[in-house]
């Protein structure tokens, strides 16, 4: 191969290199994921006066999140545990994120996906989940039980 032809074959790739280097570099920044911003708002769960008894009580909270170009309003299932000083736990299974249901006759939470089970106080009984149900920060304001919503990922990092 002469110096002439090797210079030519290098030149052939010059435009491709220019395009890929500039657009490829920008692509990395362009595609970088945008972490969604929780609003940290305190969300009403229930009036404290209506919370009593040994059973977990199922409630829905509505949380807003800024996710990229949209503000998403989503319902989340939570359980209030009156037997545990009104602790509020997320219904999201800490294993792979399906939602647990309360089985009254067996006195346990069960996950419909991979058979993780949790006791009435939210602690882990058995199954592939490695911890109990995640507790949410809670407070009582004007007779209302309020929580801040925390995703499973945030709870895992904490």
């Amino acid at each position: 191969m002469t110096a002439e032809t090797s210079r030519r074959s290098f030149l052939k790739f010059l435009p491709l290199a220019a395009v890929f280097a500039s657009i490829g570099g920008a692509a990395f920044r362009f595609l970088r994921p945008k972490l969604s911003a929780a609003t940290n708002a305190w969300l009403d769960v229930a009036s404290v006066s209506e919370l009593a008894g040994p059973q977990p009580i199922s409630r829905k909270i509505i949380a807003e999140q800024i996710t990229g170009w949209a503000i998403t309003t989503e319902e989340h299932n939570v359980f209030v545990l009156p037997a545990k000083n009104n602790q509020v736990v997320s219904a999201v299974c800490p294993h792979e994120g399906c939602e647990v249901a309360w089985e009254q006759n067996r006195n346990r939470f069960s996950c419909p996906c991979h058979e993780s089970y949790f006791a009435a106080d939210g602690s882990r009984i058995s199954g592939p989940a490695q911890r109990g149900l995640d507790a949410l920060p809670a407070r009582v304001q004007d007779g209302k039980l309020q929580v801040q919503y925390i995703s499973k990922e945030q709870a895992t990092r904490a």
Binding site: H95, E96, C113, H114, P128
Partner: peptide
Amino acid sequence: SLKYVPGGLG
């Protein structure tokens, strides 16, 4: 399989 392996190992 996810039922058998503990979380994380999934």
